[in-house]
Design a protein around this nucleic acid. Structure first.
Lengths: 207, 207
DNA sequence: GAAAAATACGAGCGATAACTCACATTCCAA
DNA sequence: TTGGAATGTGAGTTATCGCTCGTATTTTTC
């Protein structure tokens, strides 16, 4: 069989003590990524920050990348929970409110932990976690496409694939850029204006 | 005085021979970035690829980052030339054609050297070239805002800053994502459809 | 409470990378 | 032609990093 890239734990922690160790390592990794950046996140340093020896680190993570992947997976899980909830809630709404809810959720998702999100977004291409993130993208794309299909009656004639691509990409880019590169757009009024404009952009395109 | 980050040549090459050396180093760096990725781009390897010794490399570049920055600056210069030309040509056109020309130019810009563009986009956060790229963004933003101002009569009432942000960010994201992550959207028909849809998105938003 | 299993430790190994420096070669001005 | 300036060389230095492994400690099992 082919050599799989190892990003899974060597041992799975069974006692409470070791579960706490694993938890501390993932937390420490996230903290160091945010505070010092990817290049400063050496395994020795992560161990030190977590109050754990390098040896223990390598009991649970086969390599440094696996630690970063663990952080990404956890962050992704949080995002997905939030976005899935919003999409589920919006499914039965007419497009005016549905799209608005989705945009609002996208901003909320980016605000969960903006600094971590930024570091991860910048460093993901270097890790084996691309698949993970692309799966996330695909899920959003698929769900939104289904939403459009359900509300076809409210829309102009559309190539659904293309329309979903245009909408999802635009919403993601606008919220991502606003939250991560234009903090000034996040006062309450500015954020409201951003939601309005993004919603308008998407709606006028769809209708 | 404060210690400035060194990304400028130690010596500026004055003879033809040394200019050729510098040129070869930048070329080699770009080639290695595209072929092998950032992590494989060691200074020794770059020197070897350029047919130049490490010693010579360090005569003209204070560190590895400076080499990458040089590649980024060159690529950016190419992009800017293209985009500036398109914006200049579009300045007097009505928005229907102006926006379409801009979108077409954005795709052309991303197609200049997609592989290099992708590697650089991924690695820029790690280099000192962020300012560079942000300057590029700001120029585009400013030019487009001025364009909107000139064509106010054709548009609905707008917050120009916000509208320019929305349009520029969306166009950039759609073209970037399409070219770099969805090669299938770049057959001639698909590309034409993408231009149509992006143009429509922006125009219906503005009008 | 003793044996066994799980967990934790951290000095140190091997690899690699950025960068230097003492010396060689080429170019050019006088 | 020649001497100094510009350019080029690459083995070696220094530093860091990922990771191992022999050992120590804690927990569980019986």
């Amino acid at each position: 069989m082919a050599a799989r890239p190892l990003t899974k734990p060597r041992k799975s922690a069974s006692q409470d003590r070791s579960r706490a160790t694993v938890e501390a390592l993932v937390e420490a990794t996230a903290r160091i990524l945010v505070r010092d950046g990817f290049d400063k996140a050496s395994t020795n340093r992560i161990g030190h920050e977590a109050g754990v020896s390098v040896g223990s680190l390598y009991q649970y993570f086969p390599n440094k990348e696996a630690l970063v992947v663990a952080v990404i997976e956890r962050h992704n899980r949080d995002l997905m929970t939030l976005v899935r909830g919003a999409l589920a809630g919006a499914a039965t709404l007419p497009v005016e409110q549905g799209v608005r809810a989705l945009v609002t959720a996208a901003i909320a998702a980016h605000r969960l932990d903006p600094k971590l999100h930024r570091v991860l977004a910048e460093q993901i291409p270097r890790t084996g976690a691309l698949e993970n993130v692309e799966a996330f993208s695909r899920e959003n794309f698929g769900t939104f496409r289904a939403y459009l299909e359900d509300h076809r009656a409210e829309l102009r004639a559309l190539d659904l694939d293309l329309a979903a691509f245009v909408c999802v990409t635009s919403i993601e880019a606008l919220t991502h850029t606003a939250v991560l590169h234009h903090a000034e757009l996040l006062t309450d009024e500015a954020a409201a204006a951003l939601v309005d404009e993004t919603t308008r952009l998407v709606l006028r395109y769809l209708q």
